[in-house]
Design a protein around this nucleic acid. Structure first.
Lengths: 217, 217
DNA sequence: AAAGAGATTTAGACTTGTCTAAAAATATAT
DNA sequence: ATATATTTTTAGACAAGTCTAAATCTCTTT
């Protein structure tokens, strides 16, 4: 089996790889993991020995099929536990991340599948991200960044790039939630701020906010 | 906060203290924790510095009030998670221990209380052991060891001293479960084996089995 | 009260995961 | 193409938790 640290690195590298495509460099991982580049190098070597990623000095890393599989298992656990916390224990979506970070490392051959059945096989976690199935298949929803939309275009708020507490709290305050249908009313060329409309209200969001929101058209 | 290792030691010492009363010696802890006496000494020193137990060289240890409180918190978590696993995820009582050993260390100020509410404030775990409340109060049910019963006496199977997998499987096989009402039919003086009767059947259990069963009269 | 047995502690070592500081490699700019 | 900046790696250290082997203490027996 793999240690919590190893699992966390794999998960981090997986998400970086998904956003960036190419080989992931040390500094990027260090930033994501909130640690030092030297620590990343150390861990990378271990994971490379275990054939979970390929690594050439100074060239960054890429997950192997095996490494990806493990990352997806951890992500599956994380998202199912988040769903449990929100749906059964009445947490808000902006409260569950830290606890799920711990629960995702519980070791058991059967636990997560039993939990999934208990939750009635949900397909998305509370942040709108797809939950990988037992075999590591993940439903990749095609979405575009909100910044890409033109004036007049409509879409559904699908998922977030940034799941930080501050950002989630911001969305709550502005009455924006996943699955909300939105329409772009106007785009201000000066600062790229976007005037949008939901079923219930209108508001202006900054470029920074928009680039962290993905829209399903 | 405390590490998993520290929590495990506190829990082990608490249960030993409850069964034995007086100061707990190093070897006993080592056996319970499945580790070496020297490791126990090392950890004991750390816990002593943190005022979780009192320790005089060669004299064994005793939990402080603070140490007991933490042990009870861990036990509370363990038992509530066990209840969840059995009642919600349909595990058998002999399958949940290992998973609960991990879940009991999840850190959160609110999680366990929310879980308790979700489970409707159960008072006993699937092994019949009382679940400590939020403040660490534990309902101590007065029970006697099955060995203490005389011929003809009746009682209810309340809890187990040994919760090992083998023992639980044995009880399942013999169709004995918590809350079963039993009656002592005969005691064999030669080997202290006990002939008992339940609502559904009769059977003979060895001294070793009997001494691991507590009865509420 | 001395000896031997058993329990406990110490000393030193190892593993995992981390860090700092310095060295080496790569990328960028003129 | 050379100097400079940035990134990455190495070397050596540390903390937590564990271990083995040796030393020390306590208890029991005679």
């Amino acid at each position: 089996m793999f240690s919590q640290a190893e699992e966390n690195y794999l998960k981090a590298i997986y998400t970086l790889q998904n956003n960036h495509g190419m080989a992931i460099n040390t500094n990027l991982i260090a930033k994501k993991m909130n640690t030092k580049a030297s620590s990343v190098t150390d861990m990378i070597k271990k994971l490379s020995v275990k054939k979970l990623l390929t690594y050439k000095k100074y060239q960054g890393v890429k997950l192997t099929v095996k490494g990806k599989k493990i990352a997806l298992k951890v992500i599956r656990k994380h998202r199912l536990w988040e769903y449990f916390l929100v749906k059964k224990l009445n947490y808000r979506w902006d409260e569950v991340h830290e606890i799920a970070e711990q629960l995702e490392h519980i070791k058991s051959e059967t636990l997560i599948d039993n939990l999934e059945a208990f939750l009635n096989h949900p397909k998305f976690d509370p942040h709108g991200d797809p939950i990988p199935d037992k075999d590591g298949n993940i439903m990749l929803t095609k979405t575009v960044n909100l910044l890409k939309l033109k004036v007049g275009q409509k879409g559904i708020l699908d998922s977030l790039k940034d799941s930080s507490d501050v950002f989630l709290k911001y969305l709550n305050k502005k009455n924006l939630a996943l699955r909300d249908r939105i329409k772009v009313i106007d785009i201000e060329p000066f600062d790229n701020s976007i005037h949008i409309e939901t079923k219930t209200h209108q508001l202006v969001i900054s470029k920074k906010v928009a680039e962290n929101i993905n829209i399903k058209i």
